[in-house]
């Protein structure tokens, strides 16, 4: 178990999601990475019924890297998140609690794709889908021997630049630079990049990205605005179609 960085990949103009994944896969294999199977991270969200006070949300996540665990994060609506790591039986417990927590089926979101190993690096190219709709690409990179991000961020950055072919900012990713509250409610000087990394940090990063993708889904419908990964992809598909017809 080592430090993991999750990075949403901006699909280049004029490419579909599948093409972008293909392109990245080719670059990874050329770099010397070895394809080692598939992975899947999924997230389901449950909302408490109104008769039980203010609305609370429970996000239940599974990660194929930790097949025996179910991760859940309880959001009390006031900005406080309580993580819980349990056995797989937790899923059955959630089924029993339908009177308190109801599942929002239409928001079930997952990221799945190929898993690569490059030395001690673990690289996963995940395509995010919600209700069978493609939403974007999430790149997960893990450096397994190291447990503190600030020690190995430069290594991770260099590897990422190596196969993405684009510059990555020198600063730590946003998730790691947030301040940690200690038990007294005071902000600590230490930020997350200097802490020992835990599997729940990976899950938190996934949840953050998934939440962003869900918001993207709401925005175009509400405001009718174009933009976001899905519309860009549609445009790209149209262009491609046009190209084919021309040939």
């Amino acid at each position: 178990m080592g430090v993991t960085v999750l990075l949403p990949y901006q699909i280049p103009e004029g490419k579909t999601g599948a093409q972008a994944i293909d392109y990245l896969t080719k670059r990874l294999l050329a770099l010397g990475a070895i394809h080692t199977g598939q992975f899947l991270v999924d997230c389901e969200t449950y909302i408490s019924t109104p008769q039980h006070g203010p609305a609370k949300t429970v996000h239940v996540l599974h990660d194929s890297e930790y097949p025996a665990s179910t991760f859940s994060i309880l959001d009390n609506g006031a900005g406080k998140q309580i993580p819980l790591v349990a056995d797989n039986l937790f899923d059955l417990l959630m089924l029993k609690m339908t009177s308190v927590y109801t599942s929002k089926k239409q928001t079930k979101i997952e990221s799945k794709g190929a898993r690569f190993e490059y030395g001690d690096f673990l690289i996963k190219l995940g395509s995010v889908t919600m209700m069978e709709n493609f939403k974007g690409i999430l790149i997960e990179i893990e450096y397994r021997p190291c447990v503190v991000l600030s020690y190995c961020w430069e290594m991770i950055r260099e590897t990422l630049q190596g196969f993405l072919g684009m510059p990555i900012a020198k600063e730590y990713p946003a998730y790691f630079s947030q301040q940690i509250m200690n038990t007294m409610g005071q902000q600590q000087i230490h930020t997350k990049q200097n802490e020992v990394y835990e599997p729940i940090d990976t899950i938190n990063q996934y949840l953050e990205s998934f939440t962003n993708y869900r918001k993207q889904n709401v925005l175009p419908v509400a405001g009718g605005a174009t933009g976001g990964a899905s519309s860009a992809q549609n445009a790209a598909a149209n262009m491609q179609g046009g190209n084919q017809r021309m040939r």
């Binding site: 010397g32 490059y118 030395g119 001690d120 690096f121 450096y143 021997p145 190291c146 020690y151 190995c152 430069e154 290594m155 260099e158 590897t159 190596g162």
Partner: peptide, 19 residues
């Protein structure tokens, strides 16, 4: 500083997947 320092000769951090 195993993961923190770049190679003195090539100036890179990663080579063949290793620091």
């Amino acid at each position: 500083k195993l993961f923190l320092e770049a190679c003195k000769r090539c100036g890179k951090f990663v080579s063949n997947g290793l620091p």
